[in-house]
Design a protein around this nucleic acid. Structure first.
Lengths: 233, 233
DNA sequence: ACGTCGATCTCGAAC
DNA sequence: GTTCGAGGTCGACGT
């Protein structure tokens, strides 16, 4: 729908959106998105799972209420005028594939541990901890425990602290426990922080991991690029 | 635009989206959003700042390329068929107001420190620290330093650790430093964690803060609610 | 339901 | 520019 509307949200916070022309998507899975003329993000929204209550008020204004029972949130949209309403049943069976996620790096490291360090033997993926997960856990060539924290982007202090907590906890039992951050690059102050907490850093990019996995990927990728990129200039 | 399209993204990661019917928003600020029939989030997108390159390929397919120079990312959209194209110049001068954010709580506490504790005198907001910010800093009625960490939602362990780091650092210089979490509620394991780290908890809801601030807000709010909610059922 | 974490997170603000 | 923390984050996965 496109039209002159206003909106009020109430739930985890409250918001009011004054009158103006916007584009509103109401989807069959119970999600709502209100887009202003600018910006990637919607100004108001409701994730899927909403119950809709649509009515024409006594004064003639169209009102759509989207209530999400699970989180007790509600979004009210009122239309003063409507320029366009389109109702669609989109036929969409096209697959979406994303490459080079952190999960890809994890899989590459478990499959080819030498990406990290010679002699490394991973024993567990997603090891449960009192507070949180360890990405990869294993033993180094000397048999010492090695905790690996993987990030696909720049390392920030928060990630170092996260690993630091796991490691310090395990060092209470065994002071030889090693902690290692694996990522393509380090943020500014993180190098010193790593040193302070006696943690290590191994540079590794998602691309390198992808390349390592490419043998199994090649078939699928070439198939896709044939279909999708055949018409590229 | 609504039509049968496919898309490839390349940048921080890579993705391919196979043919299917979707809704595509192309905005004048250089942002793009591709929505499938379901889901609150777009399947593909590009934040604002894109340069567009639109062309009809030799084979007759419409192709839109959105390149974001700042982050060297590109999104290619190809249309096999187009059901609808609408070009709009939305007139939207309506304000968006969000209430009960963490910022609101901060402002309420600085203005009415007794919300936290009698005799509390805040001295700084957003105090810079070696790693991160302190929301509110001040002296209690005994003159001891009090570090306040504000959250508007449920407290998670991460927030406790964050405060713990600030406090332990400051306790090196002065062991009487107090640390306090201010939030509407505590997560499951956090009460024990607070005790361990010798931190305190003060229950305070965003709503209470809003009420405290309402004297100054009332004028604006009543104005808005008159305009927006006059037609409510 | 809660807890944790990744994300093409986005966005803003500070340095 | 980079770094950093917040978000009505969302979504996924596990307990």
């Amino acid at each position: 729908m496109i039209g002159d509307c206003s909106a009020t949200y109430s739930g985890r916070a409250s918001s009011t959106l004054d009158w103006g022309e916007r584009l509103v998507l109401v989807k069959s899975d119970g999600s709502v998105v209100i887009h202003k003329r600018e910006g990637y993000e919607p100004v108001n929204w409701q994730p899927s799972g909403c119950i809709f209550d649509t009515l024409i008020q006594p004064d003639g204004l169209l009102k759509i209420r989207a209530i999400r029972p699970s989180s007790r949130e509600s979004l009210d949209i009122r239309f003063r005028s409507v320029f366009l309403i389109v109702e669609l049943n989109l036929a969409d069976r096209g697959d979406f594939l994303l490459y080079a996620s952190e999960e890809d790096m994890k899989r590459a490291i478990v499959k080819y541990p030498s990406l990290i360090e010679d002699g490394f033997r991973p024993t567990m993926k997603e090891k449960r901890q009192p507070s949180g997960f360890i990405d990869v856990f294993g033993l180094d060539k000397n048999g010492d425990p090695l905790i690996v924290e993987i990030k696909k982007g720049l390392i920030r202090k928060e990630a170092v602290f996260q690993l630091g907590r796991y490691v310090s906890r395990m060092r209470e039992g065994n002071p030889r426990v090693r902690g290692m951050i694996v990522a393509p690059s380090l943020g500014k102050g993180t190098a010193k922080l790593l040193k302070t907490l006696k943690l290590e850093f191994k540079q590794l990019s998602p691309k390198t991991c992808l390349d390592a996995l490419q043998k199994e990927r090649r078939a699928r990728e070439s198939m896709l690029s044939q279909r999708l990129c055949a018409h590229d200039d």
